[in-house]
């Protein structure tokens, strides 16, 4: 136990970086995912194709590979970012593919008549989506987005391979210095639970809150 108690500071800093990474990349994923979903339901065929291409490419490549290509490969073509930014960017881009699909599924749960009525009073496509369809779609999208957030929190551990000093990286370093693999990794697992369990609870609350009236 001592190995954990003596290193609470390091765990704390790793935890903070994990949270920062998760929140940054999730915000990015939501923003990109919204655009992707809008593309995929757009009346303009090239935009639909671009949206589909993004989803089919990004979600079918392991996030670790995306990260390695970006961090170790892209400097060859002059694209260089810090470890943290690289990790946040790739996690955002990767998660956005799934967010886009979740939002698109939500859009499809809103009856066609809602969008038709919106267009019939002269709203543009963007207004129709933003004022009428999305607000109704997002209600049914909260649970899958919650799942994606939890998956993202866990995926932040990938950033350890490019030396972002988040939880997993910290624990790997502790093991090299202490050789107490079981305890350290158990501690790390518990630290992830401390993040993900409350997240699940918050998601449940949001779900209740947005579903009251319709």
């Amino acid at each position: 136990m001592e190995v954990l108690l003596n290193n609470l500071d390091s765990f704390g800093s790793g935890l903070r970086l994990t949270v920062a990474l998760a929140l940054t990349s999730f915000s990015g994923a939501l923003a990109i995912g919204l655009v992707i979903a809008a593309f995929r339901v757009s009346p303009v065929p090239p935009l639909r194709a671009a949206g589909a291409f993004y989803v089919e490419t990004i979600r079918n490549i392991p996030p670790l590979v995306l990260l390695l290509v970006f961090y170790f490969g892209f400097p060859d073509i002059g694209i260089v970012y810090s470890e943290f930014v690289s990790a946040a960017l790739i996690l955002a881009i990767y998660t956005a593919a799934f967010v886009g699909e979740a939002i698109r599924a939500g859009i499809n749960t809103v009856s066609r008549g809602q969008a038709e009525a919106a267009r019939a009073i002269g709203l543009t496509f963007t207004q129709t989506l933003g004022l009428v369809v999305m607000p109704q779609a997002l209600r049914s999208v909260v649970p899958p987005l919650g799942n994606l957030f939890i998956a993202l929190v866990k995926n932040t551990s990938l950033a350890s391979v490019i030396s972002v000093a988040e939880l997993t990286f910290i624990s790997k370093r502790l093991i090299t210095s202490t050789a107490q693999g079981l305890l350290v990794f158990l501690g790390t697992a518990i630290a992830y639970l401390i993040l993900t369990l409350p997240a699940g609870w918050v998601i449940g609350r949001i779900e209740q809150k947005v579903s009251i009236r319709r």
């Binding site: 008549g113 009525a117 109704q136």
Partner: peptide, 8 residues
């Protein structure tokens, strides 16, 4: 026919 009032 189906009114299509904005439900939200």
């Amino acid at each position: 026919q189906s009114f299509n009032l904005f439900a939200h």
